[in-house]
Nucleic acid binder design. Structure first.
Lengths: 209, 209
DNA sequence: GATTTATTGTGAAAAAAATCACATAATAAA
DNA sequence: TTTATTATGTGATTTTTTTCACAATAAATC
């Protein structure tokens, strides 16, 4: 069964909404409530759940705790994930301190950079030379990494990461990385996202005239 | 005509690919080449172009310079865009220094924060108190902003931005912001993107077994 | 215990997006 | 100048995604 990216994103959103509901002390939720919380339709919510065999209770909705656990399990988030970041530039360092990762059981085990001035073995998350990348990935059995290096070194870094055994990558470099069989690459392109805003803002303005 | 977000994203990608081709000295390009560069099919490229009335030359492909200008115009990128960032945390500061924005004619005019310790009126991009947000947006006629504040203040900040006249927002806070008529909101949720990687990596692993 | 009410779960339908396939036309070759 | 070749541009088709709509059923009410 091949699940669309949007569907997985919605699962993450459901999970986050459920976390909030849990913290507010709620115990049950309807597809309608979840739909409102993440701005989709209630049938979309139920279709998504049905796809993964998640079932609730007719008339009673879903038990939040159970639903949360099921979605978390589907997302593979019932375990702590150890990851690395390659590139200790501004974005790399921002992600290093990103609070949401901590909350969500995502542990950054090390950051790598080619600039000797950035190396810091003593900090709680060590910043290590890229030379040690392979050794570290293999020794720590890291499977997931984030690329925050400049565009021109991103492909090289990816190749090294995959060579070392990385299986999934979140890439912030604005470049179309080569695809490898069995390797997951997800791109976040900030400039492109801002250009989306620019396009639709402009289109909206023209409509008003 | 309502253009899908994916289609606008592809336009951005074509533009970036064309920039690279231009820099390499090429003058003409086929739909096939562009398709390869951004990992889509050539008919997808031609369909996208056809949607915007972009036409090339049968047998001769597209003139890179012309195509670039047309796409840039569609994206509203033939002018410099002045934007602001609200939230001078790690991500806000990373975006403040983001090289790609400079290259792409996106000018960050100011960053705002509620923490007095972060204020710096002298730096090349001033960091100002949020109190001055409305005044600045109106005086400078800023239309587009980026939200990089924590989750719990994001909605408040959005309300203030819209009150001041902002029309498009790129939001990094992991929260479903309220929709406003005529206002464009595009969300980037880094945790969610990483969870996508985790999900597909896990799924891939299970397939191997 | 019967009846009403409210919500799920899911096939069917609709809408949206991507791909196909080929007529059309520009260029190159003969 | 004619013929062959090679890309485009787009209507038709297919695939994917979302929404609809309603039977099934659990809980609440009478």
């Amino acid at each position: 069964m091949n699940i669309a990216k949007n569907c997985v994103s919605r699962l993450s959103s459901y999970k986050n909404a459920l976390t909030k509901l849990k913290n507010l002390g709620f115990t049950r939720v309807f597809s309608d409530n979840l739909a409102d919380l993440i701005s989709v339709t209630s049938s979309q919510v139920r279709k998504d759940f049905s796809l993964f065999g998640i079932s609730g209770n007719r008339k009673g909705g879903y038990n939040i705790e159970e639903l949360f656990n099921q979605i978390n399990h589907i997302l593979g988030k019932d375990i702590v994930h150890n990851i690395i970041i390659v590139g200790a530039g501004y974005i790399g360092k921002a992600l290093m301190k990103y609070k949401t990762f901590e909350k969500e059981g995502i542990k950054i085990r090390a950051v790598f950079d080619s600039d000797p001035a950035k190396i810091n073995r003593e900090s709680s998350i060590p910043i290590l030379p890229v030379k040690e990348l392979k050794e570290f990935i293999q020794a720590q059995r890291i499977k997931i990494g984030i690329i925050t290096v400049p565009e021109n070194s991103a492909q090289l870094v990816l190749d090294q990461m995959i060579d070392a055994g990385i299986q999934g990558v979140l890439n912030f470099a604005p470049i179309n990385l080569k695809e490898y069989p069995g390797i997951i690459i997800n791109n976040v392109n900030i400039e492109l996202e801002l250009e989306n805003v620019i396009y639709y803002t402009q289109t909206m303005e023209n409509n008003k005239k």
